[in-house]
């Protein structure tokens, strides 16, 4: 009875369904155009002859396309230097984030110790803490250590497991690895550390990759912390440097957009490469969080 109702339902619906689908595609395409428009606008400005961005009404892609804006903008300010700085900070932070979050997560997933659950709850609740409550004490600590205007405040916290979100993500993954393999390794005489390095880590490449990409995007684009800790021109990051195109009464939009594109490319490229795992990571923490 019920299955015949369903069949009838789907037969009746097939025409209506097509109309609905057409509407869905239309809405999604319109939305996609809106989402992509800022990117297109960015690219269109980046290849305009400087000065022509102030022609009214605004035009998309006026000839000639001036690709030299990319190199001109890049050399107008010490972007090569800033690129190097940002790369060093990012690479070290990513290394720290991946190493420390996997070690701490392993502790939570596999080692028995008193108060483990309580500690884990504390860890999760710190995910809710406004970062800015910690900002001032951290600044004071780093100043006390004489670390202001060095890269250390930006890098070192990552080596101390500083991001609960990453620990959570990695722990969830570790819990899905069957215990049997480690048991077998233990029988063969492997210790805790050996089985961590030789069994758990190689199996966890996807989640460690996600942590790496998350950390990369976060550090690469970070603004507030470099702003607070870095003061000399030659130590700045790309995020800080981009602002120098903006002036009180004049902004060189063509150069700014061109260089912005270069700054954004690594994050976007990484996202595309790691997309499948990345989306899985977002979804895991979102649904089980």
């Amino acid at each position: 009875m019920s299955s015949t109702t369903l069949v009838h339902y789907y037969e009746r619906q097939s025409f209506k369904r097509r109309i609905t689908l057409a509407f869905v595609y239309l809405a999604l395409t319109a939305g996609a155009v809106v989402i992509l428009a800022p990117f297109i606008w960015m690219l269109s400005t980046a290849v305009k002859v400087p000065g022509t961005e102030f022609i009214y009404p605004p035009q998309l892609f006026t000839r000639p396309l001036r690709w030299n804006n990319f190199s001109d903008g890049w050399t107008a300010l010490p972007f090569t230097r800033w690129f190097f700085n940002t790369s060093v900070i990012t690479l070290l932070s990513v290394t720290g984030a991946v190493t420390s979050s996997s070690l701490v997560a392993y502790g939570f997933a596999r080692l028995e110790f008193p108060g483990r659950t309580a500690l884990f709850v504390i860890l999760l609740s710190t995910m809710m803490l406004p970062f800015h409550v910690r900002l001032i004490p951290m600044f004071i600590t780093f100043r006390f250590l004489g670390w202001i205007d060095t890269y250390l405040p930006l890098i070192v916290p990552f080596f101390f497991g500083g991001v609960p979100f990453f620990i959570f993500l990695v722990r969830q993954f570790f819990l899905t690895i069957p215990l049997e393999m480690e048991d077998a390794a233990a029988i063969d005489g492997a210790g805790v550390f050996t089985s961590f390095v030789l069994i758990i880590l190689p199996l966890s490449r996807p989640v460690l990759g996600v942590v790496g990409v998350f950390a990369f995007i976060r550090v690469w684009n970070d603004f507030l912390e470099p702003l607070i800790y870095l003061h000399s021109m030659d130590k700045m990051t790309l995020s800080l440097g981009l602002r120098f195109f903006q002036d009180q009464d004049f902004t060189d939009w063509t150069s700014l957009m061109a260089v912005s594109i270069i700054v954004l490319v690594p994050s976007v490229a990484l996202f595309f490469v790691a997309q499948k795992y990345y989306i899985h990571g977002v979804v895991t923490t979102g649904i089980k969080g």
Partner: peptide, 22 residues
């Protein structure tokens, strides 16, 4: 579609803020 809609969430920061000023 999913990639397109998610893309802006990947690129937060100064570059995006300045883009929106423009």
């Amino acid at each position: 579609f999913r990639t397109i809609y998610y893309l802006p969430s990947v690129i937060v920061g100064v570059a995006v803020s300045l883009l929106w000023v423009w």
